[in-house]
Amino acid sequence: MKIKTKSKKVNKAWLHDHMTDPYVKLAQKEGYRARAAYKLKEIDEELKLLRPGQLVVDLGATPGAWSQYVRRKFAPKQAGVGGAAVGALDGTIIALDILDFEPIEGVTFIQGDFREDAVLAQLKEAVAGRPVDVVISDMAPNLSGIESADSARIAHLVELAVEFSQSHLQSEGALVCKVFHGSGYSQLVELFKKTFRVVKPIKPKASRDKSSETFLVGIGLKKA
């Protein structure tokens, strides 16, 4: 019984934090599906990564807040209102996730596990040989609570995103990748430094203080 009571208290505390969170309120007001949109917005405003006309690949896209943000960047100003802007779209967005994804006009969605070769082949087919301008990855594995196992799962997803970027990014392209501080973090920073000319770790204000998440941004591929 004590365990259940504690669980209820935790759930209640999380619900309270969630409902009073200013970014949750802002997302509801501005029509974003999740507060995560403001993490990408902050990174983009600092580094000026996203511009109309680009090809962007969104990994771990569900529920779609990052694709919504990119969609608005690509939409004509008069159409850029509401959750997912409607009308003309100056740019291409390809989103991928293992979970269901509520459609966003103009966004191509592939459902599947990025770790599987068949799914990666589908993504490559959608890219169709075009150079990708920006890869954004909010992918995270289901965490077990066992640090060594979780670190390995996180690292594997980041390594796959880096590999995809090496194969498909244009030379001045960028990768934005969610990572977590802790075991294995310094190795991921080193991987980014080996791969990209410019590497910036960013902890957006919209990322909760309690969370160990941060984002690594790599810009400009180093020549192999």
Rank of each mutant, 00 (worst) to 15 (best):
G218V: 01
D209I: 08
D90N: 15
W66A: 04
W66D: 02
N142Q: 13
A79N: 14
D138C: 03
I43S: 08
V56T: 09
E105Y: 09
K205F: 09
Y32G: 03
T62E: 10
D21M: 00
E159W: 12
S165W: 10
Q78G: 06
D138F: 02
D97Y: 13
E159D: 02
I104C: 05
G218A: 08
F101H: 10
E147R: 12
K4L: 05
Q187E: 15
Q166I: 02
G173N: 12
P201W: 11
A36K: 11
L120I: 03
I110K: 05
L169V: 04
V70N: 02
S207D: 08
T108V: 13
L15E: 07
W14V: 13
E125P: 01
L26I: 01
R130H: 12
R72A: 01
D100F: 11
A206I: 01
R197I: 01
E116N: 08
Q166S: 08
A174W: 14
I3V: 01
I154E: 01
P141L: 11
K29F: 00
R71F: 07
G173A: 11
L15W: 01
A85V: 01
E45W: 09
T108F: 11
P204W: 13
S151C: 09
V158R: 07
G60P: 04
S165M: 05
V86H: 13
Y185I: 00
L143E: 09
Q68G: 10
A61F: 06
T92K: 08
V176H: 11
H156A: 11
S186I: 01
Q170V: 02
D58F: 06
Y38N: 01
Y185W: 11
L15G: 00
F180T: 04
Q111H: 05
A140H: 03
F101Y: 15
E46Y: 04
K223S: 15
M1A: 14
Y32E: 06
L49W: 09
S151V: 03
I94W: 07
N11L: 10
L143P: 03
G145I: 05
K29V: 00
G184Q: 09
E159R: 15
T20C: 01
F164H: 06
I93D: 12
L169Y: 14
E116C: 02
K222C: 10
G64Q: 02
I136A: 08
G184S: 08
P52K: 10
A155D: 05
T62N: 09
G106Y: 04
L96T: 14
F164G: 02
A121T: 09
